[in-house]
Amino acid sequence: MMIIIKAIIILIEIIIAYLLQTSVFTELRLADVVPDILMILTASLAYIFGKKTGILTGFVSGMLIDCTYGSLIGLYALMYTVVGYVAGYAHKVYDENDYTLSFFIVGGSEFLINLMYYILFYFLKGDLDLGHFLVRYLFPRVIYTVLISIILYRLINMNNSLFYRLSKSIKKEKRVTVFNGFNVDDDRQDI
């Protein structure tokens, strides 16, 4: 049950992030780059919930971009999935009250996805000018994305703690049922 609620919440977050990225922030370009909102979401959720969530969020986000703006379906999904998986390793050091670390994780993820982007879209086409790509796209994107993530990560984390409180209250109800002697196995699976 909790997993369905979580999936729905994350799906809604992905849709909002996608709309922000394609319709709102394309009008708020700085140095001709758009902050990667879907990346912020993927990296943050991977950091907060772990690899599984990161992978699935990344896959759905990438699929959305593929279906609307990609020429080949699956390229962006692949990149976002990889980033979700890698960022998921950071879950081990997750601390609900620490905001600083998230910026490094979002920045690192953005760096990683842009490197993959460079390899897939430039390097394989024969464009070897990495310096130009770094200065023109990668650094502005990383900086802008990290700046936006300062605000967005707070929202995502807040949402997450709300979600945790909700799941705790449900668990409490479960505990009451356990206490009354109903269905002990149910509770064990929930751990």
Partner: peptide, 30 residues
Amino acid sequence: SKMIFTVLVILCVALIIVSYLFADLLSPVK
């Protein structure tokens, strides 16, 4: 979690190949 990752990566690669070979096949999804 590793399994999901592997499955999704394989799925992505398969989709890339499919959409490269048969561009019109996936256009209803788009």
